[in-house]
Design a protein around this nucleic acid. Structure first.
Lengths: 237, 237
DNA sequence: AAGTGGTCTAGACCACGCC
DNA sequence: GCGTGGTCTAGACCACTTA
């Protein structure tokens, strides 16, 4: 018999179990049937239900332990959300506005004390203003390690902004983002055309490659211009 | 032969392939050997390499297509970060400070026009101030649908703040977070003890259960007091 | 001691998408 | 067509943990 256009069996089994959990039929802490029982229920091999349960465990809906069995997970106290960190050019153009950028500063220097995690070699310091329909959209200050990413030295960042170039050219293995609200200082206010003290959204990003610092960037948006939206998958912990 | 304390074979194979990708040995766009080839390379069954490659594909390091084979994925232009949305009480106590909260407002009313997505029944409106060592830490305004979560009507939110209760008691299937920087308006400034116009970080959260609105919350933090940190796994798209 | 999940095998059939 | 990944099976052995 051919089952046309159906989901794989392991996913249908997983969805069935998920439905019972979300409907409240199986409450947090309840025991989920064992693999052998489910194997009989669904009339399939043990590997198939095993995969279904493994996927649910990876998504945090159940907790599996040897001997103790599989139980419905408790909803987390901490939740996590996935935030889209957009490419600025794509973001501006996605709103139907004209994108442009200007390189305000480009210097090579030794890292300061607070920048020691980027390594001891020289760093490239850049300052770029991104505009949407001519109005300031974000001011970006960025350090690039010339030890980890030496090819950055020869790049013309006046022609193409550093964010996209880095993402495309320099692989990284780890990153940390910090999102905060800050009051515009004098330089930021002037660059963005805001009053001093205006609320701005700051996105700070640090990336590493195999443990060595690649780049450290601060992007400051006028508070009124920009939101980060985090759509949520029902992950639990 | 017993292999003591080793990782599963499929994970060792996946780590090996990941290493070749991250080291640049296999570049984006390069073809990864087929399952049959890898099966011979590692001397194991096809299901084992299949699982290793599936896991890498789920993490976005490779793209798999029938007939075309498996290729190393291109790094994404858009990246995504996982943000921890902490429970406020845990966050405050994690910093070694004393947590307290006060219920400033509690009313039951019909939803306004902009709140129509929460359904047509009554909503509960709450306003809670959370403090750390006696200083305002966050002001929270929250609507709860009494249609979707009728059990909220009998809860004493002066005794336990609504955030934790909702997470524990009301399962939800979907959520959206919006992170922005705002200037404190008069009410917010008074509640948080800030000057009007001070930069604040706002976290807006909406949750649904099976398509029906559960709750809509705005949490406003003094900008100086709070950052959201997003640690990044090397997910790609 | 025994039950549970975790992994692995060898083989099979199928769906998809280039050729 | 035909090569590739996607899935499924029936069985096996093992590791871990609790009773």
């Amino acid at each position: 018999m051919t089952l046309l256009r159906e989901d794989p069996l392991h996913r249908r089994i997983g969805a069935d179990i998920e439905r019972r959990i979300l409907s409240g039929d199986w409450a947090p802490g309840d025991r989920v049937p064992t693999e052998v029982e489910l194997m009989a229920d669904y009339g399939c091999a043990r590997m198939t239900v095993s995969r279904a349960l493994s996927d649910l465990a990876a998504r945090g809906l159940v907790v599996r332990r040897r001997r103790a069995g599989t139980v419905v997970a408790h909803p987390p106290v901490h939740s996590a959300a996935v935030v889209d960190i957009p490419d600025i050019q794509a973001e501006v153009e996605g709103r139907g506005m004209a994108y442009a950028h200007a390189l305000l500063k480009r210097t090579e220097r030794a890292p300061a004390a607070a920048e020691g995690w980027m390594g001891q070699g020289a760093v490239l310091e850049l300052e770029t203003l991104h505009t949407a329909d001519g109005a300031p959209f974000v001011i970006e200050r960025r350090l690039i390690s010339l030890v980890t990413a030496p090819e950055a030295e020869g790049v013309d960042f006046a022609a193409s902004p550093p964010g996209g170039w880095l993402l495309r050219q320099v692989p990284w293995t780890e990153a940390e983002h910090r999102i905060s609200a800050v009051a515009a200082d004098r330089d930021t206010a002037r660059a963005l055309g805001l009053p001093v003290g205006a609320a701005c959204l700051r996105l700070e990003r640090r990336t590493w490659r195999e443990g060595r610092g690649v780049t450290w960037a601060w992007q400051t948006f006028p508070g009124a211009a920009y939101d980060l939206v985090a759509r949520f998958s029902p992950a639990r912990s």
